[in-house]
Design a protein around this nucleic acid. Structure first.
Lengths: 116, 116
DNA sequence: TCACAATGATACGGAACCGAAACGGTCGCG
DNA sequence: CGCGACCGTTTCGGTTCCGTATCATTGTGA
Protein backbone atom coordinates (compact mmCIF):
# COMPACT_ATOMS: atom_id res chain seq x y z
CA UNK A 1 0.00 0.00 0.00
CA UNK A 2 1.58 3.23 -1.17
CA UNK A 3 2.38 6.18 1.04
CA UNK A 4 -0.65 8.46 0.95
CA UNK A 5 -0.24 12.08 2.06
CA UNK A 6 -2.91 14.73 2.15
CA UNK A 7 -2.01 18.27 0.99
CA UNK A 8 -1.65 19.55 4.51
CA UNK A 9 0.75 16.79 5.43
CA UNK A 10 2.78 17.19 2.24
CA UNK A 11 3.33 20.93 2.62
CA UNK A 12 3.65 20.69 6.37
CA UNK A 13 6.42 18.16 6.04
CA UNK A 14 8.24 20.21 3.43
CA UNK A 15 7.84 23.28 5.60
CA UNK A 16 9.14 21.65 8.76
CA UNK A 17 12.19 20.12 7.12
CA UNK A 18 13.07 23.27 5.15
CA UNK A 19 12.76 25.29 8.31
CA UNK A 20 14.97 22.88 10.19
CA UNK A 21 17.60 23.03 7.47
CA UNK A 22 17.60 26.82 7.30
CA UNK A 23 17.72 27.27 11.04
CA UNK A 24 20.48 24.82 11.78
CA UNK A 25 22.93 24.77 8.93
CA UNK A 26 25.60 27.43 8.79
CA UNK A 27 26.16 26.84 5.09
CA UNK A 28 23.45 24.72 3.62
CA UNK A 29 23.56 23.05 0.25
CA UNK A 30 21.86 24.44 -2.81
CA UNK A 31 18.78 22.60 -4.00
CA UNK A 32 20.84 21.43 -6.95
CA UNK A 33 23.67 20.25 -4.77
CA UNK A 34 21.21 18.41 -2.57
CA UNK A 35 19.66 16.71 -5.59
CA UNK A 36 23.10 15.67 -6.85
CA UNK A 37 24.11 14.30 -3.47
CA UNK A 38 20.91 12.30 -3.11
CA UNK A 39 21.22 10.98 -6.64
CA UNK A 40 24.75 9.76 -5.91
CA UNK A 41 23.77 8.02 -2.71
CA UNK A 42 20.35 6.62 -3.60
CA UNK A 43 20.92 5.42 -7.16
CA UNK A 44 23.27 2.52 -7.94
CA UNK A 45 26.69 3.53 -9.29
CA UNK A 46 28.55 4.32 -11.40
CA UNK A 47 27.89 8.05 -11.52
CA UNK A 48 29.56 10.35 -14.02
CA UNK A 49 29.44 14.09 -14.56
CA UNK A 50 27.72 13.64 -17.86
CA UNK A 51 25.17 11.23 -16.46
CA UNK A 52 24.28 13.49 -13.55
CA UNK A 53 23.98 16.47 -15.86
CA UNK A 54 21.54 14.57 -18.06
CA UNK A 55 19.53 13.27 -15.10
CA UNK A 56 19.21 16.67 -13.45
CA UNK A 57 18.71 18.46 -16.75
CA UNK A 58 21.54 20.92 -16.09
CA UNK A 59 24.81 21.72 -17.84
CA UNK A 60 28.03 19.89 -17.08
CA UNK A 61 29.80 22.82 -15.40
CA UNK A 62 27.03 22.87 -12.83
CA UNK A 63 27.92 19.32 -11.86
CA UNK A 64 31.65 19.97 -11.85
CA UNK A 65 31.27 22.99 -9.60
CA UNK A 66 28.87 21.24 -7.26
CA UNK A 67 31.33 18.35 -6.96
CA UNK A 68 34.10 20.84 -6.23
CA UNK A 69 32.09 22.35 -3.40
CA UNK A 70 30.83 19.09 -1.94
CA UNK A 71 34.23 17.48 -2.45
CA UNK A 72 35.79 20.22 -0.34
CA UNK A 73 33.20 19.41 2.32
CA UNK A 74 34.18 15.75 2.10
CA UNK A 75 30.70 14.71 1.03
CA UNK A 76 31.81 13.10 -2.25
CA UNK A 77 34.99 11.94 -3.94
CA UNK A 78 36.18 11.78 -7.55
CA UNK A 79 38.22 9.03 -9.16
CA UNK A 80 39.41 8.64 -12.73
CA UNK A 81 37.96 5.68 -14.54
CA UNK A 82 40.81 3.35 -15.57
CA UNK A 83 38.71 1.62 -18.22
CA UNK A 84 38.08 4.91 -19.98
CA UNK A 85 40.30 7.64 -18.67
CA UNK A 86 38.04 10.35 -20.03
CA UNK A 87 35.45 9.48 -17.40
CA UNK A 88 35.37 10.51 -13.79
CA UNK A 89 33.59 8.20 -11.36
CA UNK A 90 31.94 9.93 -8.43
CA UNK A 91 32.43 7.99 -5.21
CA UNK A 92 30.53 8.10 -1.95
CA UNK A 93 32.22 8.94 1.33
CA UNK A 94 31.54 8.18 4.96
CA UNK A 95 30.93 11.86 5.66
CA UNK A 96 28.41 12.02 2.84
CA UNK A 97 26.55 8.97 4.08
CA UNK A 98 26.46 10.45 7.56
CA UNK A 99 25.18 13.77 6.26
CA UNK A 100 22.29 12.12 4.47
CA UNK A 101 21.57 9.86 7.40
CA UNK A 102 21.06 12.94 9.54
CA UNK A 103 18.84 14.47 6.89
CA UNK A 104 16.76 11.32 6.87
CA UNK A 105 16.45 11.50 10.63
CA UNK A 106 15.15 15.05 10.37
CA UNK A 107 12.56 14.08 7.79
CA UNK A 108 11.42 11.13 9.89
CA UNK A 109 11.23 13.20 13.07
CA UNK A 110 9.27 16.00 11.40
CA UNK A 111 6.91 13.54 9.76
CA UNK A 112 6.18 12.02 13.13
CA UNK A 113 5.34 15.38 14.69
CA UNK A 114 2.98 16.29 11.88
CA UNK A 115 -0.68 16.87 12.77
CA UNK A 116 -2.88 14.25 11.18
CA UNK B 1 -1.51 7.65 14.52
CA UNK B 2 1.50 9.66 13.43
CA UNK B 3 3.09 9.49 10.01
CA UNK B 4 5.84 6.88 10.26
CA UNK B 5 8.55 6.86 7.59
CA UNK B 6 11.50 4.52 7.36
CA UNK B 7 14.91 5.96 6.35
CA UNK B 8 14.60 4.74 2.80
CA UNK B 9 11.23 6.38 2.37
CA UNK B 10 12.36 9.62 3.97
CA UNK B 11 15.42 10.09 1.79
CA UNK B 12 13.68 8.68 -1.25
CA UNK B 13 10.91 11.21 -0.92
CA UNK B 14 13.33 14.09 -0.44
CA UNK B 15 15.32 12.86 -3.41
CA UNK B 16 12.36 12.56 -5.73
CA UNK B 17 10.91 15.95 -4.89
CA UNK B 18 14.28 17.72 -5.07
CA UNK B 19 14.93 16.11 -8.41
CA UNK B 20 11.54 17.14 -9.69
CA UNK B 21 12.12 20.72 -8.59
CA UNK B 22 15.57 20.94 -10.15
CA UNK B 23 14.48 19.38 -13.40
CA UNK B 24 11.36 21.39 -13.98
CA UNK B 25 11.78 24.87 -12.66
CA UNK B 26 13.73 27.39 -14.69
CA UNK B 27 13.90 29.72 -11.70
CA UNK B 28 13.72 27.74 -8.52
CA UNK B 29 13.58 29.29 -5.10
CA UNK B 30 16.43 29.22 -2.63
CA UNK B 31 15.96 26.97 0.36
CA UNK B 32 15.59 30.11 2.44
CA UNK B 33 13.04 31.60 0.11
CA UNK B 34 11.12 28.34 0.14
CA UNK B 35 11.12 28.26 3.92
CA UNK B 36 9.89 31.86 4.07
CA UNK B 37 7.13 31.18 1.57
CA UNK B 38 5.94 28.10 3.44
CA UNK B 39 6.05 29.94 6.74
CA UNK B 40 3.88 32.70 5.33
CA UNK B 41 1.31 30.32 3.92
CA UNK B 42 1.19 27.64 6.60
CA UNK B 43 1.37 29.70 9.76
CA UNK B 44 -1.48 32.05 10.77
CA UNK B 45 -0.83 35.74 10.07
CA UNK B 46 0.25 38.39 10.68
CA UNK B 47 3.79 37.99 9.36
CA UNK B 48 6.40 40.69 9.68
CA UNK B 49 9.99 40.99 8.52
CA UNK B 50 11.24 40.91 12.06
CA UNK B 51 9.14 37.90 12.98
CA UNK B 52 10.25 35.90 9.98
CA UNK B 53 13.87 36.77 10.64
CA UNK B 54 13.58 35.53 14.20
CA UNK B 55 11.74 32.35 13.20
CA UNK B 56 14.22 31.43 10.47
CA UNK B 57 17.21 32.53 12.50
CA UNK B 58 18.51 34.85 9.78
CA UNK B 59 19.13 38.59 9.55
CA UNK B 60 16.45 41.07 8.51
CA UNK B 61 18.02 41.97 5.15
CA UNK B 62 17.72 38.34 4.14
CA UNK B 63 13.97 38.57 4.62
CA UNK B 64 13.68 41.91 2.87
CA UNK B 65 15.59 40.68 -0.15
CA UNK B 66 13.68 37.41 -0.32
CA UNK B 67 10.43 39.37 -0.21
CA UNK B 68 11.74 41.60 -2.99
CA UNK B 69 12.46 38.59 -5.16
CA UNK B 70 9.27 36.69 -4.40
CA UNK B 71 7.26 39.88 -4.60
CA UNK B 72 8.52 40.42 -8.13
CA UNK B 73 7.39 36.88 -8.90
CA UNK B 74 3.98 37.72 -7.48
CA UNK B 75 4.25 35.06 -4.79
CA UNK B 76 3.82 37.47 -1.87
CA UNK B 77 2.71 41.03 -1.24
CA UNK B 78 3.67 43.72 1.28
CA UNK B 79 1.34 46.16 3.01
CA UNK B 80 2.10 48.82 5.59
CA UNK B 81 0.49 48.24 8.95
CA UNK B 82 -1.85 51.13 9.73
CA UNK B 83 -1.87 50.40 13.46
CA UNK B 84 1.90 50.76 13.61
CA UNK B 85 3.28 52.23 10.45
CA UNK B 86 6.75 50.92 11.16
CA UNK B 87 5.56 47.41 10.49
CA UNK B 88 5.10 45.74 7.15
CA UNK B 89 2.52 42.98 6.94
CA UNK B 90 3.32 40.25 4.46
CA UNK B 91 0.25 39.16 2.55
CA UNK B 92 -0.47 36.00 0.61
CA UNK B 93 -1.38 36.06 -3.07
CA UNK B 94 -3.29 33.79 -5.37
CA UNK B 95 -0.13 33.07 -7.34
CA UNK B 96 1.69 32.09 -4.18
CA UNK B 97 -1.08 29.78 -3.06
CA UNK B 98 -1.09 28.18 -6.49
CA UNK B 99 2.66 27.75 -6.42
CA UNK B 100 2.54 25.90 -3.11
CA UNK B 101 -0.45 23.88 -4.19
CA UNK B 102 1.59 22.56 -7.09
CA UNK B 103 4.49 21.82 -4.76
CA UNK B 104 2.15 19.86 -2.53
CA UNK B 105 0.91 17.91 -5.53
CA UNK B 106 4.48 16.98 -6.41
CA UNK B 107 5.20 15.79 -2.88
CA UNK B 108 2.01 13.73 -2.82
CA UNK B 109 2.68 12.22 -6.23
CA UNK B 110 6.27 11.30 -5.39
CA UNK B 111 5.23 9.83 -2.06
CA UNK B 112 2.74 7.62 -3.81
CA UNK B 113 5.34 6.29 -6.24
CA UNK B 114 7.76 5.46 -3.46
CA UNK B 115 8.78 1.82 -3.02
CA UNK B 116 7.55 0.47 0.27
C1' DT C 1 8.77 68.46 23.11
C1' DC C 2 12.66 65.72 22.38
C1' DA C 3 15.84 62.10 22.93
C1' DC C 4 15.60 57.22 22.22
C1' DA C 5 13.97 52.67 20.66
C1' DA C 6 12.19 49.92 17.00
C1' DT C 7 11.16 48.59 12.18
C1' DG C 8 12.12 47.76 7.58
C1' DA C 9 14.99 49.22 3.70
C1' DT C 10 19.39 50.30 1.60
C1' DA C 11 24.70 50.65 0.61
C1' DC C 12 28.69 48.27 0.10
C1' DG C 13 32.29 44.87 -0.58
C1' DG C 14 32.78 40.08 -1.09
C1' DA C 15 31.54 35.37 -2.22
C1' DA C 16 28.98 31.81 -4.82
C1' DC C 17 26.64 30.42 -8.72
C1' DC C 18 25.19 30.52 -13.56
C1' DG C 19 25.31 29.71 -18.89
C1' DA C 20 28.03 29.79 -22.92
C1' DA C 21 32.17 29.02 -24.91
C1' DA C 22 36.70 27.31 -25.22
C1' DC C 23 40.34 24.00 -23.73
C1' DG C 24 43.29 19.75 -22.73
C1' DG C 25 43.30 14.93 -22.39
C1' DT C 26 41.48 10.53 -24.11
C1' DC C 27 39.30 7.22 -27.11
C1' DG C 28 37.70 5.17 -31.60
C1' DC C 29 38.11 4.26 -36.15
C1' DG C 30 39.52 4.59 -40.92
C1' DC D 1 49.11 7.69 -37.76
C1' DG D 2 45.65 11.23 -37.92
C1' DC D 3 41.27 13.22 -37.27
C1' DG D 4 36.97 13.68 -35.24
C1' DA D 5 34.11 12.67 -31.19
C1' DC D 6 33.74 12.53 -26.35
C1' DC D 7 34.46 13.83 -21.35
C1' DG D 8 35.39 16.75 -17.66
C1' DT D 9 37.34 21.13 -16.54
C1' DT D 10 38.27 25.95 -16.88
C1' DT D 11 37.50 30.71 -18.28
C1' DC D 12 34.69 34.68 -18.90
C1' DG D 13 31.22 38.11 -17.94
C1' DG D 14 27.24 38.73 -15.47
C1' DT D 15 23.73 37.97 -11.88
C1' DT D 16 22.26 36.88 -7.34
C1' DC D 17 22.88 36.35 -2.61
C1' DC D 18 25.20 37.29 1.77
C1' DG D 19 26.62 39.87 6.28
C1' DT D 20 27.68 44.15 8.32
C1' DA D 21 26.74 48.60 8.89
C1' DT D 22 23.90 52.45 8.22
C1' DC D 23 19.64 55.01 6.99
C1' DA D 24 14.74 57.03 7.02
C1' DT D 25 10.51 56.61 9.15
C1' DT D 26 7.62 55.85 12.97
C1' DG D 27 6.37 55.07 17.70
C1' DT D 28 7.30 55.75 22.89
C1' DG D 29 8.00 57.73 27.19
C1' DA D 30 10.17 61.01 30.23
Amino acid sequence: MPLELNPSQALGLWHAVSLSQVRSEAHDLTLRQMAILLQIYLVPPPHTVRGLAATLNVTKPVITRALDTMGAMGLVDRVRDDQDRRNVIIKRTVAGALYLEKLGDVVIAEARQLPY
